[in-house]
Design a protein around this nucleic acid. Sequence first.
RNA 1: GCCACCAUAGCUCAGUAGGUAGAGCGACUGAUUUGUAAUCAGUUGGUCGCGGGUUCGACUCCUGCUGGUGGCUCCA
Length: 638
Amino acid sequence: MSDIHITFPDGSVKKYETGITGQDVLHDLNGRIKKEAVAVKVDDKLFDLHRALPSGKIEFLTFDSREGKDVFWHSSAHIMAHAVKNVFPKAKLAFGPPVEEGFYYDIDAGQSIGTDDLAKIEEEMQVIVNANRPFERDELSVDEAIAIFKEKNEDFKVEQIERLGEPPAIYREGDFIDLCRGPHLPSTGYVKHFKLLTIAGAYWLGDEKNPMLQRLYGISFPKKSQLDEFVNRLEEAKKRDHRRLGRELDLFSIQDDIGPGLVLWHPQGAFIRHKIEEFWRERHLKTGYEFVNSPHIARKSLWNTSGHLEFFSENMYSSMEVDEQEYLVKPMNCPFHLLIYKSRTRSYRDLPYRWAELGTVYRYERSGVLHGLMRVRGFTQDDAHIFCRPDQLDDEVVKLIDFSTGMLKAFGFDNIDVYLSTRPEKYVGSLPNWERATEALKNGLEEMGVPYAVDPGEGVFYGPKVDIKIRDSIGRSWQCSTIQVDFNEPERFDISYIGADGEKHQPIMIHRALLGSLERFFGVLIEHYAGAFPLWLAPVQVSVIPITDGQHEYAKAVHAQLIEADIRAELDDRNEKVGYKIREAETRKIPYMLIIGQKEVDLKTVSLRKRHEGDLGSSNLTELIALIQDQVNAKSSS
RNA sequence: GCCACCAUAGCUCAGUAGGUAGAGCGACUGAUUUGUAAUCAGUUGGUCGCGGGUUCGACUCCUGCUGGUGGCUCCA
C-alpha cells in the first residue's frame, strides 16, 4: 500500500499512512482549528473528519466559511429530522438541505405539524445533541439502500435513490438513518445552539402539481453569542419592516375596501415619492431622455399584436367592454411606446430614441405572493424604452448600466448584485437574435467592469435581461433595476427606420426600469433607512420646539426664516413639555430639532438637536440654514 | 393558487369549564408654562373581520367566505 501525501496550505507536504483521517491530521496540528474544524477538503472534495483521506491539498473547514456553515446546517437538518421522527414516528422525510441562513427539512408528517409542535421537536433535538452521537457514513448498493428505506416507509427516499440510480451514501446517527451525500459533523454534540423558526408549505420537488409537504426551518450555531445575534437581527429586521413603518410614519396603506395589492400613498409617503420622481426626471433629462405618457387601457387587439395575450395573459386583469369593443388594463407600457415610434417615419440619424414614462401598470398576482409594497398588483414603473440601431446597442447597454448603478447610488445603495438572465423555455424570437442580445448585455457588463452572475433560463419571454438587486442595510436583497433587450416586439409591431442606404431597417428595443417600481423601491428605501429618511427626502426636515409660550414669538420667526429658505420646517408650539415634543420628533424621525428656550431668545441662537444623536449645543441660525441647504443639495445620505 | 398560522377600540395586546368585553398608547377636554426620548386628571372609543350553523345563550365550538403573516410556485 502506498502512502498518503498531504499538502498543507503553507505548501509543506507530509507523509501519512493509508487510511489516515482528517481527525488524525488534526491531531498533529495546534490552535483553534483543532476544536473548530467541522469537515475537511482535499483537492476540492469534501470529507467527513473520520473518513480516510486521499493524497492532495488539504483544507479544514470551520463554521466561518460558507462550506463549513453548509456542513454544520446540513447536520442540524438531520438532527431536526431525527427529532421529528421521534415526535411523529410516521413522518416521511423528503429533502433537508442547508440554505443561505440555516436549514430546512421537507416532511410529510402524516398529520399537520403546528407551531406548538416546534417546542416539542426542539426538546427532542436537545436530547439528540446531548447524546453527542457520531454521524457514521456508509456506502450501499442501490438495492440495499432501497430495501432499508422501504422498510422504514421512506417513500421519498426510495424515489430519490431510484432517480439517482447510483450507489448512494447514507449516514447513521444512533438509530436514525438518512440518505445523504455528506459530509457531516463528527457528532451531534457540535450543534450546541439552535432554534426552529417557522413552518411553511413546499411542494415535493418544487412542482406545484406534486403533493405539498411541510417545511420546517431552523437555524443553529456553534456559539451562543451567534444565535443571540441572529435573533437580534431578526428583531431589528422586524423594526425596519416597511409595513410597520408605513403605518407608524403614516406613509401609505393598503385597504380591504380597495383590494389587495393596491396602494394608497398618504401625504408624507406621497411627498417622498414626489421627491424621488423629481430627482428621477432631472437625471433623465440630463442623460438624454424624453418623456412620454400613455393611457391605462387599450384594445384587446393591441395586446394580441404585442404578444402579451399569448405570453402574459395569466398576469393580466380580465377585459372590460366598451362600445362592444374589448379593452384590457395595461400590464406593461411597451406597446404604447412602440406605437409612438410607429406614428411617423424614423431616420437612422434620429436614433437612438430614449423615451421614459412613470407608467402605472396592473398585473394579476396570485394572492399568496402579495407582500406590502414589495409585491403589489398596481404599481408605477420608472419605465423607458430605447430604440436604437444594431450598431448602437452595445453603447446603449453600457450607458444603461452606468445610469442605473449611479441612480441607485444616489439613494444610498452601494451594494448591488448583478444577474444576467438568459433564454427561458417559453420564448419568442429567433435563436441568433437571442444570442446577439445576450452578448450585448454581457459585453456591457464586462466593459463597465461590473461583476455579475448568470441566471440561466430566467429571461423574459421576449429577451434576455440584466437585473440589479440591491441590498438593504441588513443585507437582504431586492430586485429593482432591470434592463431587457427585445428583438421581438419591433418585429411584431413591424417598426422600422430609414437607413443611410435609403432602405428600411428594424431597430432594436431595450426595455428598462431603474428603480423598478416606485412601490417596491419605496418599500426598500423605507427598510434601508429604517424610516429615517435622508434630509433631502424627509417630508419634515426640521421641528422648531419652543419650551414655553414665552418663546413662541421668536420661534415663529425662526420657523418663518426656515420656510423662507425652502426648508421643510414645522413649529411645535403645543402646550407640552420639551421632552414630550422631542420624543415625538424622534419617533417621527425628523432629522433636526431646534429647541428654543429663553437663553436662545436672549442670545438670538437656536439649540440644535439631531435625530439619533441628541443635543449638539447652540448654533447660529443663518449658518445652520446654509448647512442644511448644503446637505440637501449634496443629497447626503444621513 | 397551495400548506401552516392569524383576525378583539385608530395602534399594541389581554379576555378557554360558552353567560353579549378590558388595559396601555392615541384622540378629545381641562389643569399645568415646562431645558433635550412620555406632566397630571377626566372623556371618548368596539354589531369581537363577514355570513351560516350548534346552543336557552357564541368573541369563545363547527363551517363557508374575505383579508393578512411565513413559505412554495411566480415576479418590478
